[in-house]
Design a binder for these strands. Structure first.
Length: 139
DNA sequence: AACGGAACTG
DNA sequence: CAGTTCCGTT
């Protein structure tokens, strides 16, 4: 599955902010060595399956120095993404979620979308990724 | 398993 | 602000 490069840039900025869960997920998805743990679902674009929930949680807990992490907690964090419109659940399919790429791409290319005024869509108070527009209010 | 409120953390 | 922890409910 081909994926926009910006999506994998989590670690490429060393002294930057803390790793975001959706970013971490993308990171695992990108690497072959984790394909038995989490992988893209063939067919639906952006849909992925967590084949080993405990392992994904363990890895996430490791990254965040949160040894008590488990799938129950991790999935709660994923559920918060529903409202932020980063992810949604694929109902019926176990451990299966789907990314909202259209949304993510709009946030990363606010002006490329259509015209000069479209940027307002992103800036109306809710930056779903926290990386798109960065600091506001400075002026 | 999946959901979502609520309190809490850095 | 982006989760983490806990937990009652479906």
């Amino acid at each position: 599955m081909a994926f926009p490069d910006w999506a994998y840039k989590a670690e490429s900025s060393p002294g930057s902010r803390q790793i975001q869960l959706w970013h971490f997920i993308l990171e695992l998805l990108q690497k072959e060595e984790f394909h038995h743990v989490i992988a893209w679902q063939q067919g639906e674009y952006g849909e992925f399956v967590i084949k080993d929930p405990d392992e994904v949680a363990r890895l996430w807990g490791r990254r965040k120095c949160k040894p008590q992490m488990n799938y129950d907690k991790l999935s709660r964090a994923l559920r918060y993404y529903y409202n932020k419109r980063i992810l949604h659940k694929t109902k019926g399919k176990r451990f299966t979620y789907k990314f909202n790429f259209s949304k993510l791409i709009v946030i990363h290319h606010p002006l490329k979308a259509e015209g000069p005024l479209v940027a307002c869509h992103v800036q109306r108070g809710r930056d779903v990724t926290g990386m798109g527009t960065g600091r506001r209010g400075g002026r």
